[in-house]
């Protein structure tokens, strides 16, 4: 168990972060090179002002027409993404681990809040799961990989919650938590989770075309 812990909390963390950051940079750079080569228009018409204008309307809940059309989805997806990003980054337990390793630290949220956000993320995953099952237009588009991704995202939160609350086998869950977190991080650049990387670009490009060329709104 000690060796396993040392492995998952040591070298594997490095591996996960290297894959995540390296992979993300690779995806973004290779996409940029491809765009330069074959989609010159993306650079020609990209306009930061209009890109940001569009992005802002989409990262603020209810700021776009479609967010207003789907209030539940909007609430859940924003809560989910906030929980998904804020919880791991501002979790005290994570920060102290980083402090121990690299002697850097930042503001940590109260554990109670982290608990709530974790439940929000897990509940959102359940919501997304049910949505994929229940709404015909979503079900039609859903493939197995979408469920796998959902599980990959939910797993670190479930296991984290589990081990934090010290339910049975919490040591094992602790290992599983670290492992699943690393897997999730590592797959971001190479799965649908890469929408995290490409959102600003695809949205920004559409915003640029709409704002800069078409002189119309795109939200």
């Amino acid at each position: 168990m000690h060796d396993l812990y040392a492995f998952v909390s040591g070298p594997l963390v490095w591996v996960a972060f290297i894959i995540f950051f390296g992979g993300s940079i690779y995806r973004l750079v290779s996409m940029a090179i491809l765009a330069k080569k074959k989609d010159g228009v993306v650079f020609e018409y990209f306009n930061f002002k209009y890109a940001l204008r569009s992005i802002f309307h989409w990262i603020i809940p209810f700021a776009s027409t479609n967010w207003r059309l789907h209030p539940w989805m909007t609430i859940v997806t924003f809560a989910f993404h906030i929980g998904l990003i804020f919880t791991p980054v501002f979790l005290f337990a994570h920060i102290i681990l980083i402090k121990e390793s690299w002697d850097i630290s930042w503001w940590a949220m109260p554990d109670g809040l982290a608990d709530i956000l974790t439940l929000v993320v897990i509940a959102s995953c359940v919501f997304f799961f049910v949505r994929r099952q229940v709404l015909p237009e979503v079900k039609y588009l859903t493939s197995t990989s979408d469920y796998v991704i959902l599980v990959l995202v939910a797993l670190p939160f479930i296991t984290g919650f589990w081990t934090y609350h010290q339910w049975p086998e919490s040591t094992f869950m602790g290992i599983l938590h670290i492992l699943s977190g690393e897997v999730m991080l590592a797959v971001i650049p190479f799965t649908k989770l890469s929408h995290m990387l490409f959102f600003p670009i695809t949205r920004g490009y559409m915003g640029s075309e709409f704002g800069g060329v078409r002189q119309a709104k795109d939200w």
């Binding site: 000690h2 060796d3 040392a6 920060i95 102290i96 402090k99 081990t163 040591t171």
Partner: peptide
């Protein structure tokens, strides 16, 4: 405070991992 916590954690965990004995995870 963080540094104090870090000192405690490092004291216990480094030894435990080195000795392959004793608790290492938060919940332990």
């Amino acid at each position: 405070d963080m540094d104090l916590i870090k000192a405690y954690h490092n004291m216990c965990k480094e030894c435990h991992i080195g000795q392959k004995a004793g608790p290492v995870q938060c919940s332990e």
